[in-house]
Simulated assay, not measured.
Amino acid sequence: MTPRVRVLIVDDQELVRAALRAMLRRTVVDVVGEAVDGARAVEAAYELRPDVVLMDVRMPGATGVEATERILRDWPHPGPRPRVLVLTTFDLDEYVYAALRAGASGFLLKNTTPRRLVDAITEVAAGEATLAPTVTRRLVRAFSGLPPPLLPGGPGGTPGPGRQDSPLSALTRREADVAHLVARGLSNAHIAEALGLGEAGVKSAVNRILTRLGLTNRVQIAILVLTAENGGTHPTR
């Protein structure tokens, strides 16, 4: 049985909060509370201890970025901190970078589909990271020009025998297929459907990719794949 995910919705517009509640009803998500601004979001998160905070960016008073930073930095409980998934109308770079610097695990736009939103919530609740595809592509451009990471297979980043310069050459064909679908923003369930695999097999493949390439989350996989496709340098770890 799929575990339930407890979510706190933070948005200053009542209509948006109501729409999100209706969208998430009859899914694996339980909406445990709401907040109308950043300051109340911090209070509600401390009180309700949700698994995921669905956070707007532009709100009166404390912004979603400020609230994210306070929740994660000053968490008063011994248990794990909630994950923050930013959901906003605005995809301006300043908000993306600020949210990720504050510790957000994901960044989606409000024009995302209901299924993708639920997938993103469950992904970040499980410790993954997720970004809207358009956001990932801009991050690739931001990372271009940075030095490449150490490549698997040889000391000092030197590729092993018979390998190409790209660290993606360290992957098996199946792992490369999974990596490219991760870069397209697909969830494990969608990747499994596309490749005719079990969802557990996809999760194992993602874990192997992270280990082989020395990465920590699927956002970094996406950046690496898109950078390689664009002929740029590789993002740092």
Rank of each mutant, 00 (worst) to 15 (best):
M1Q: 06
M1C: 08
R4Y: 05
R4H: 11
D12A: 07
V16E: 15
V16W: 08
R17W: 09
L20K: 07
R21L: 15
R21D: 13
A22V: 01
R26C: 12
V29S: 15
V31E: 12
A41L: 09
A44D: 12
Y46P: 01
E47C: 01
L48W: 02
D51L: 00
L54W: 03
L54G: 01
G61I: 10
A62T: 05
T63C: 00
E69D: 00
L72K: 07
W75P: 08
G79A: 02
P80A: 11
R81V: 10
V84I: 15
L85I: 06
L92G: 13
V96F: 04
Y97Q: 13
A98Y: 05
A98S: 07
A99D: 10
L108Q: 07
K110C: 06
R116M: 10
V124M: 13
A125R: 06
A125Y: 11
A132I: 00
A142M: 00
F143P: 04
P147Q: 12
P147C: 09
P147E: 14
L151C: 08
P155H: 07
P155G: 05
G157I: 04
P159E: 10
P161A: 12
G162W: 11
Q164G: 14
Q164M: 10
S166F: 00
L168W: 06
L171H: 05
T172F: 11
A176Y: 03
A176S: 02
D177C: 04
A179I: 04
L181S: 05
L181E: 07
A189R: 13
A192V: 10
G196V: 07
L197K: 01
L197Y: 05
G201C: 13
V202L: 14
V206M: 13
V206Q: 14
I209G: 04
R212W: 09
G214Q: 07
L215F: 04
L215H: 01
Q220W: 01
Q220V: 03
I223N: 00
V225N: 08
A228S: 10
T236H: 06
R237K: 07
